[in-house]
Design a protein around this nucleic acid. Structure first.
Length: 885
RNA sequence: GGGUUUGUAGCUCAGCUGGUUAGAGUACCGCGUUGACAUCGCGGGGGUCGGAGGUUCGAGUCCUCUCAAACCCA
């Protein structure tokens, strides 16, 4: 090899401790600047595409993002190396409420409000804010090593996405799937906007159940209702009882008198009423309770609003007007008591709806909002999952998804915010016409007036993210990207946004592309703190991934986030696990250093005969490549990572490298040395490729030091699984390992100083040839001075410790060092173990049921085991008897 | 109230379609520092798999019930 890049670089540059900070930035720049992440449409190649769940533009990276992005990056790098035309498309979300709140905060510091600024000026400020701070999270993703195509980065409010939003809205509107109506919605008195049903979090709270007496008109009787919200009684327009409730049957159709305000309201019958709850009679406030609203519709009850947008009592509340809802509750209860209408108050635990953003108790309120009619959209969305054209991984999440869609309610999409996609509907001031159009209209198509007013509301942020898989590929244009990369291959996201996002992407995609947005959805769990709690700002238990990266390196964080965990389950974050993973990175680093140090004089050339260890590690390497590939294909990243960890540490480092030292240090036999170098190199280089998706930086750094062709490891092909499996080598190697472990155990138990070599006698008939082939290895790894392999021993060494393996007996003569008592105890323990095992196996084989019904193969295996155990036990007993003489 | 998940060594977690003496990391104990790595090596102790019952020749691995924890929905 004459080309400089083909030979190993001077390994002396490699420090004995891996320093991620030193290499990470360098390689990321190298990859990005050379355009290695860029995906051009290559029609002849199979595509693999992922759209990144767009993080909030206001956000900074948290461990959840880190995990989500790591998984996507692993899949992307894996498929890229496999030769797919790979696109990982990044972007950010405009995050209506969050972003608006951020900028309002900023304004508040200047003593300004958005209303003082005005809509247009405010929006300018938001855009300016976005330009300045919005890129933060994308920079952080780079620190993590994300190999997404930044040249295609998108934003949910960019021109293309906005165009897609318009297109979808107008189309749904024209199909009658978007409508405007007066319905009960969730109002956040703090964010001053509606939020959708799923943005409400139900929290169990200790509250009070007040029993209120409503006198029946023209009667001595009274109906007692139980309520957790006495203040809304001012807006009651009925009392409902169950139609079959004997207690109240005679009152149905009668009228009761609302205390305090003395308004007359009817007693109605509705099956919704739970007879068991409270008194079995319910006050109905259609304007401020979702269930009451439904009842109100069924019974055509009037809606009396008593709360305003600040959740204060309004003009319909008479003397309570202006009071906050909780203050009003106290006052009203006091007044009811004074009037004798308060029967009792009892403690009561119930679920209270809170705003997902600010945790303010939401106020159900009737108001005029825009909705998406869900039923017709939900049906096909369920169908594609049921028929398997869209798959959830793990599949249990499909049930959650389906369960939600089965009971779907219409989606409230209007938000009383300024930052977002404004609803493309205009109202004609002249004739009252409602105009929904893709292009801003200048005049009213009905009356020609130019006095048009656009609806002030914006759309729910999720409306635009629902279009993400195709809007980012250029839709509504028919772009080559859309044709080639859509439907995307897999969506990777947390299980917390199945409803918010996944479901909505699926039904919009089906409606507009007539195809699923992705063939598979891989759902992962959440990253929890060490105690298993969600990480949150209020708890202050969040961990900053960037700090972790600075301390341990991105590769360590990545590897740690995908190990020790099964698909779909939550992951607890334990700092100690970072150390363990960092040690693993360091181990790889040092193993590579070792190889490089011994490769200085390496030149490609034909190998000599492969040793047992060579054949063994090559076989194990192949098996690992195959298993890792399979695990990655079924999205079991934790298993893939575990396999690599085990292979590298336990097999490659602990055994193969140690064995290789024999030939490496033997300068006489250059062919053997060369062969060893060659195998070390092959396995290390291939293993780096297998590991690259998990630890891109470390593997790139090592790979660049190894003899190589090509610019970057990330562009190399994935190791080919060639089916090479050397069963013989694996079996023989296993025997050698057993022998070595047995000798090591003897040495340790007998306190033989580690530096002191000892003679090893191996007595075996059946395995003589095998053991002979590994003589050097045993000597090297078990600290043998010399090794004697015989078929039988005339006279057993007196002062020797021994061990028995199937078909093999081992003696370690320890003149003067043997502690007879210790050795006897050791043998007795061994015998006890084998005896137990022997009994277990014999019992099994004596069971006619087992012998008769179990597969012959299994029975045969057990028989062989019994034979082995019996033989071992006999040998051990013989030995013990000898010692006791 | 419905649903999902989890309950395996002191701790954190693996264990695929039931069949080796139930594994790893970490912690713990003993020994070890010239030669890849003390962010290391070698050796060792430690669990009968939440509980009960069942299916089966055979169950951590399937079924039923039960206890506990977390989450989602209502």
């Amino acid at each position: 090899m004459s080309d400089a890049s083909h030979s190993a670089k001077n390994s002396l540059e490699l420090s004995s401790v891996y320093d991620p900070g030193f290499v990470e930035g360098k390689w990321y720049r190298f990859w990005e600047e050379n355009g290695f992440f860029k995906a051009e449409v290559e029609e002849d190649k199979k595509s693999f595409s992922i759209v990144m769940p767009p993080p909030n533009v206001t956000g900074s990276l948290h461990l959840g993002h880190a995990m989500d992005s790591t998984i996507q990056d692993i899949l992307t790098r894996f498929r890229r190396m496999q030769g797919y035309n790979t696109l990982w498309l990044p972007g950010t979300d405009h995050a209506g409420i969050a972003t608006q709140a951020k900028v309002e905060e900023q304004l508040a510091k200047e003593g300004l409000s958005r209303h003082e600024l005005g809509r247009d000026k405010f929006l300018e400020r938001v855009w300016a804010w976005k330009e300045q701070y919005g890129g933060r999270i994308t920079q952080q993703l780079r620190r993590l090593g994300a190999s997404c195509d930044w040249s295609r980065e998108r934003f949910t409010m960019d021109e293309g996405c906005s165009k897609a939003v318009r297109e979808v809205f107008v189309d749904l509107y024209n199909k009658g799937l978007i409508y405007r109506g007066n319905y009960i919605v969730n109002w956040c008195p703090r964010c001053h906007t509606t939020i959708s049903d799923i943005e409400v979090e139900h929290v169990d709270r200790e509250g009070q159940l007040s029993h209120l007496r409503y006198p029946v008109k023209d009667s001595d009787e009274a109906l007692v209702v139980a309520t957790t919200r006495p203040e809304t009684m001012l807006g009651d327009t009925a009392v409902a009882v169950h139609p079959e409730d004997e207690r109240y049957r005679h009152l149905i159709g009668k009228t009761v008198i609302l205390p305090l305000v003395h308004r007359e309201i009817p007693v109605i019958a509705d099956v919704y009423v739970d007879r068991e709850f409270g008194t079995g009679a319910v006050k109905i406030t259609p304007a401020h309770d979702p269930n009451d609203f439904e009842i109100g519709l069924r019974h055509k009850l009037p809606e009396v609003k008593v709360l305003d947008k600040e959740a204060r009592m309004n003009e319909n509340a008479g003397k309570y007007q202006g009071l906050d809802r909780y203050e009003a509750r106290k006052r009203i209860l006091a007044d009811l008591e004074a009037e004798g209408a308060l029967v009792k108050v009892e403690k009561h635990e119930h679920a209270v709806g809170e705003c997902y953003r600010c945790s303010t108790v939401i106020e159900p309120m009737v108001s005029k909002q825009w909705f998406v009619k869900m039923e017709p959209l939900a049906k096909p969305a369920m169908e594609v999952v049921r028929d398997g054209s869209l798959e959830f991984v793990p599949e249990r999440f499909a049930r959650i998804y389906l369960g939600w869609l089965e009971n779907i309610r219409d989606w409230c999409i209007s938000r009383q915010l300024w930052w977002g996609h404004r609803i493309p509907v205009w109202y004609c001031e002249q004739c009252g016409a409602e105009i929904c159009a893709k292009e801003d209209p200048l005049t009213c198509p009905t009356c020609g007036s130019s006095k048009l007013e656009q609806d002030p509301d914006v759309l729910d942020t999720w409306f635009s993210s629902a279009l993400w898989p195709f809007s980012t590929l250029g839709w509504p244009e028919r772009t080559p990207e859309l044709k080639h990369f859509y439907p995307t291959t897999v969506l990777v996201t947390g299980r917390d946004i199945i409803f918010f996002w996944v479901a909505r992407m699926i039904f919009t995609a089906l409606e507009f592309q007539h195809e699923v947005p992705f063939k598979q959805v891989m759902i992962h769990g959440l990253v929890l703190d060490a105690q298993g709690r969600k990480m949150s700002k209020s708890l202050g238990n969040g961990v900053d991934p960037i700090e972790v990266i600075q301390k341990y390196g991105a590769d360590t964080l990545r590897f740690m986030l995908v190990t020790g965990n099964t698909p779909g389950n939550d992951l607890r974050f334990h700092p100690e696990r970072l150390e363990a993973t960092r040690n693993f990175a360091n181990k790889i680093w040092n193993a590579s250093r070792f190889v490089l140090m011994n490769l200085a004089d390496y030149a490609e050339g034909p190998r000599g005969e492969l040793t047992l260890a060579d054949r063994w590690i090559l076989s194990r390497y192949q098996a690992t490549a195959e298993d890792v590939s399979k695990a990655l294909e079924r999205y079991d990243l934790g298993e893939a990572a575990r396999l690599l960890y085990e292979f590298i540490w336990s097999e490659f480092c602990d055994w193969y490298i140690e064995v290789s030292k024999i030939r490496l240090y033997d300068r006489e036999n250059t062919l053997a040395r060369h062969t060893s170098q060659s195998v070390l190199l092959e396995v290390l280089e291939g293993t780096m490729r297998l590991l690259h998706p998990f630890m891109p930086f470390l593997t790139e750094e090592i790979w660049q030091h190894l003899p190589h062709d090509g610019e970057s490891i990330m562009l190399q092909s994935w190791p080919q699984v060639n089916g090479y499996w050397d069963a013989v080598a694996e079996k023989e190697m296993a025997l050698h390992m057993e022998i070595i472990k047995a000798v090591r155990n003897i040495r340790a138990e007998m306190n033989v100083a580690p530096g002191k070599k000892a003679e090893i006698i191996v007595v075996t008939k059946a395995e003589q040839e095998t053991v002979r082939a590994g003589e050097d290895m045993i000597k090297q790894l078990a600290g043998g001075s010399k090794i004697e392999i015989v078929g039988a021993l005339e006279q057993k060494p007196a002062q020797a410790a021994s061990a028995v393996l199937p078909g093999v007996e081992i003696f370690v003569p320890l003149k003067g060092l043997l502690d007879l008592e210790k050795e006897i105890a050791r043998l007795e323990k061994e015998i006890a173990q084998t005896l137990k095992e022997q009994e277990r196996l014999a019992g099994k084989l004596n069971n006619p049921g087992f012998v008769g019904k179990a597969p012959a193969e299994v029975v045969e295996k057990e028989r062989a085991k019994l034979e082995n155990v019996t033989q071992r036990k006999d040998s051990l007993e013989t030995r013990l008897a000898e010692l006791r003489k």
